[in-house]
Design a protein around this nucleic acid. Structure first.
Lengths: 202, 202
DNA sequence: CGCCAATAGCTATGTACATAGTTATATGTG
DNA sequence: CACATATAACTATGTACATAGCTATTGGCG
């Protein structure tokens, strides 16, 4: 159900086609939410059925059409309601930490590979999210530009500040993951100095 | 598929019944993985069908029975294979950070409520995970005790160190979330000092 | 002895997500 | 003009997870 509010949220910036919405939720460019097409198109239709969005058909070239979705007053109200509703926190679940708990079941080279991969992954995330923050703060991010055009100037500071704040939180998490992986490499060195590779269970 | 390896992992400490396994994966007491019963029992059966575990029936009182699952040699091999396999990182997805990006759509009291709830949630997680670390390092954690009884002394340091390491990573993440929420409360104060509660879109 | 909670073993149902693929049209470039 | 990529709109299928509930037996406590 979070996808619904993520869609409503981006429609408060500007109306979008299904394809543009899917582009915003593509998992590879550092956005704050993700979803596959197979969730997005049906959800847009359900929201349209509930009058949270209104789809207006536009011409696209001489023979094509596209549907652009506008958030409705009911959609804004639903979004505001959700924005005032306490969140339900799911239990934490993370494969990398779970696997790390059992590193004694593999050789130090594999442990090193996992930790280096983990650091590399989150270093890349930091780069992606940092570039989002830069685009937000410079107002060059297209959704920011759209919002600043649409809403009165006295709201601009909050609009920009909260998006930067959200990404800064993600960057903090990613930095904690990088630091944790590095501390794991140090732990590995300490453990290797103690006992050479004697695997558990052998 | 991660559940399978989480189950194999805990069976390397000691054989468990389905119910005991489900207890280890209960979402409310700070473990490193979680799963509902509806996943655990079918997965145990699939793993038994694939000879990764062996279920042995035991008597339970005069009329009851229980099945205790033992990891097999094939199960250990599959677990080692997974422990040496690079992980696939899913795109990050987190409702609290997504919602924070749009805090301008609600009033400062709701923003404060969200941030305080976020800090409280992760403060509680830190307490739970810290108590896991204490139990691990004091060797009073039942799974640790089982492992130290089962495996040779030269492996004990690694067994303990890697589990503590995994939880320390989770604690770092939780601390980053608490710090982020606190920095959000500070941001909120700065924004409130600038402009009183003018909501976007009104 | 009765009652309640724990132990034990599940299933049904629905939602969220991953992956892969499809057809049609438009646009830009060489 | 031809070709490749982007835009546009999806669906099919399978896995992961959430929630709620079920029956049976044992054990502890008042």
């Amino acid at each position: 159900m979070s996808l619904r509010y993520a869609i409503l949220a981006i429609l408060t910036a500007a109306p979008l086609t299904g394809y543009e919405t899917a582009k915003r939720f593509e998992g590879s460019v550092g956005h704050v939410w993700h979803a596959p097409d197979s969730q997005i198109y049906p959800e847009l239709r359900r929201m349209e059925a509930e009058a949270l969005v209104e789809g207006r058909e536009e011409r696209w070239g001489p023979k094509g059409t596209k549907t652009r979705y506008y958030i409705t007053a009911a959609g804004e109200a639903a979004f505001r309601d959700w924005m005032a509703t306490p969140l339900k926190y799911a239990p934490w679940r993370d494969v990398a930490h779970m696997q790390a708990a059992y590193f004694e079941w593999t050789d130090p080279e594999s442990v090193r590979m996992h930790l280096e991969q983990h650091a590399a992954h989150y270093t890349e995330q930091i780069a992606q999210w940092s570039s989002q923050v830069q685009a937000i703060e410079s107002h060059e991010h297209p959704m920011i530009a759209a919002r600043l055009e649409r809403y009165p100037a006295e709201q601009h500071e909050r609009i920009v500040a909260f998006k930067a704040f959200a990404y800064e939180g993600l960057i903090r998490l990613a930095q904690a993951e990088v630091d944790w992986a590095h501390s794991g490499l140090e732990l590995l060195e300490r453990l290797d100095a103690d006992v050479p590779a004697a695997d558990a269970g052998d």
